[in-house]
Write a protein that binds this DNA or RNA. Structure first.
Length: 575
RNA sequence: UACCCGAUGGUGUAAUGGCAGCACAAGGGAUUUUGGUUCCCUUUGUCGAGGUUCGAGUCCUCGUCGGGUAGCCA
């Protein structure tokens, strides 16, 4: 070992012990660190994310991606992206690119290790031949119905296939002919010869290969047989030298089979580890249901900002950092839990609070007229871009006699604790002046259309020389300089915490939140927002976090609300 | 019904036989040119019954409850 190698492994140990002392480890970290101590995998850590290219990734996948790539990064190991494309009748290239984009966006780095299970088909075939020669696999002529009927039940063992004891020669011949395409779909399978009486169904002579005469998106018509997940997955892990093969809980009782195949073959044997998949309140996570939301036009496509898909969250304005923070907070365990949607919202607030540029935008505008402000006067005022980060600097915002403010920032008859505009009350216009509310103008129906006030010229910038305080500060935009925009306000997709709960009457689609999207078509924004770009994140002060939508155009701006600001006033107001 | 896995405040998650801790939520207070942020304080927990032990959230037994499993899906 060279000195630099020695240093490297020392560093690794130090990192591990430092982690140990500074925070607690989740059970997978404990397994990895223990393996490092015993030298089980020669101190290597190599993980993978193995999606099937048959749908879009969602936040549940993000948990897995962040876990797998995070373990590799944390322990100086490697991470592979591998498409588990073993079933051509369900898969499509269309999904490959979107999955790559999502994984990359999350910050998981697979380097040059982008793999496809289908590239291992020849090797898998050779392995299958080995098992046949060992007398551990056989070609079975039973139909799928017959296989099901002879598999037994939880209390009764299965009955052996009449084809179980074919000779090695016959099996070899038949298997080759299955590959050559001599037999129709479903007419034969290759099965492992294990134990029809096993309490674990997965061990009752599981199917290894089935006949499918469907062109594969990467292999074309080369193959007429395709490997089943249980047969293929361990081999893929083994071929790639994966150390810790992390998957979700439902594969737990597949592990004996995973182990059996690798042991019978006598090949390199990674360790499968199962963790609990993510469940989130007020949404659904199954591919089938997400697809149904799209095809049923309940949402505007896979990347609708209300969807829990990674592309949806991205369009909504979530950041990879927010999702990583979220995953850190929820932890990793084997307990099936449901995470409250507010935890996700908090994670994105925490991230965006640090990095979002502050801007002023009025979503529900009414005019504010400053009666004692000179008619033709215009000025610019200096506003701070981000109080959380001085490096973001300042900007200038135009100001004049007529402004827009939020309708909700004026009340004609206000409760005592209302700190905003009401006749006789003085408030601060953020970064501008103190103004005192005088009165309002109403239309024929009694709706307030204009609020009138008087300003104190000595309070320019928003502070008074005499030191008097105001209770409230409200945001505003100059009426003449404002730019128009459409703003889309998103809320939870469902109005029940668990749309999947069988306790709920009806279909899960019956519980869609009718107010999950509110479109504000006449928002007034400060002029600098006209130059916003898709990668920027904004906080509209006192309102929430926003980002430009992909459908936005220079003459028709569209912003998405990522998440509202915490609002302790609404709690107070309810009392 | 059989097998596998799990169970710690309202929700998540630590404590690896030795003071039940952290985060979020909730409640209270301070600061504040965002009713935001930040800071401080408070309330709330080991599924049940036995056993082992000086000592059990942790180990054992039995129960209860929850999840998963009977695709030629992954």
């Amino acid at each position: 070992m060279s000195t630099s190698d020695a240093n490297k492994s020392n560093d690794k140990n130090e990192v591990a012990s430092e982690e140990n002392s500074t925070r607690s480890l989740h059970f997978i970290e404990q397994i990895i660190e223990n393996d490092a101590k015993t030298g089980k995998f020669g101190n290597r850590v190599h993980t993978r994310f193995p999606p099937e290219p048959n749908g879009y990734l969602h936040i549940g996948h993000a948990k897995s991606i962040i876990l797998n790539s995070g373990m590799a990064q944390q322990y100086g190991g490697l991470f592979n992206l591998r498409f588990d494309d073993t079933n051509p009748s369900k898969e499509d290239v269309e999904y490959v690119e979107s999955i790559k984009e999502d994984v990359k966006w999350l910050g998981a780095d697979w380097g040059d290790r982008l793999f496809f299970a289908s590239d291992y088909f020849e090797q898998m075939y050779e392995y299958a031949v080995q098992l046949i020669k060992k007398g551990k696999a056989y070609v079975c002529d039973l139909s799928s119905d017959e296989i099901r009927a002879t598999r037994g039940t939880p209390t009764e063992p299965g009955t052996p296939s009449p084809w179980r004891d074919r000779s090695v020669e016959e099996n070899l011949d038949l298997f080759q002919r299955m590959r050559d395409g001599e037999f129709p779909d479903g007419s034969k399978t290759l099965r492992a010869k294990i134990d029809m009486a096993s309490p674990n169904f997965n061990m009752r002579d599981p199917v290894m290969y089935r006949i499918i005469h469907t062109p594969h998106h990467r292999q074309g018509n080369k193959w007429n047989i395709y490997p089943m997940y249980d047969w293929a997955h361990g081999l893929e892990d083994s071929i790639e030298g994966i150390t810790h093969s992390i998957c979700t809980l439902e594969f737990e009782h597949h592990r004996p089979l995973y182990d059996w195949f690798l042991d019978e073959l006598g090949v390199y044997h990674p360790q499968q580890i199962e963790f609990a998949r993510l469940n989130l309140t007020y949404t659904v996570m199954s591919k089938r249901k997400l697809l149904a939301l799209v095809t049923g036009k309940y949402v505007d496509g896979w990347d609708d900002p209300r969807m829990p898909t990674i592309c949806g969250l991205r369009r909504r304005g979530y950041t990879p950092e927010a999702l990583r923070l979220f995953c850190k907070v929820i932890g990793v365990a084997k307990f099936n839990s449901t995470i409250d949607a507010t935890v996700l919202e908090n994670a994105v607030r925490e991230d965006l609070n640090k990095k979002a540029l502050r801007r002023m935008a009025v979503l529900d505008p009414i005019k504010l007229v400053i009666d004692n402000y000179p008619e033709e006067q215009k000025e610019t005022l200096v506003a701070i871009n981000n109080p959380e980060n001085e490096d973001d600097g300042t900007r200038e915002v135009p100001f004049s006699k007529v402004l827009y403010i939020e309708r909700g920032d004026f009340m004609e008859d206000a409760p005592k604790k209302y700190f905003r505009l009401t006749p006789g009350k003085e408030v601060r216009l953020r970064y501008a002046y103190y103004v005192t509310c005088k009165n309002c103008v109403k239309d024929a129906e009694g709706n307030v259309v204009e609020v009138h006030c008087e300003y104190d010229p000595a309070t320019r910038g928003g502070q008074s020389p005499d030191g008097r305080k105001v209770q409230g500060t409200i945001h505003w935009v100059d009426a003449e300089a404002a730019v128009d925009a459409e703003v889309r306000l998103y809320d939870r997709l469902f109005n029940v915490p668990n749309p999947d709960d069988p306790q709920n009457p009806g279909e899960y689609t019956d519980h869609l939140n009718p107010d999950s999207l509110k479109i504000v078509s006449n928002a007034k924004l400060e002029p600098s927002l006209a130059n916003a770009t898709l990668d920027e994140r904004f906080q509209f002060e006192r309102v929430g976090y926003f980002t430009l939508d992909k459908t936005s155009a220079p003459d028709a701006l569209v912003f998405n609300r990522t998440v509202s600001l915490r609002d302790s006033w609404s709690k107070l107001a309810q009392k």
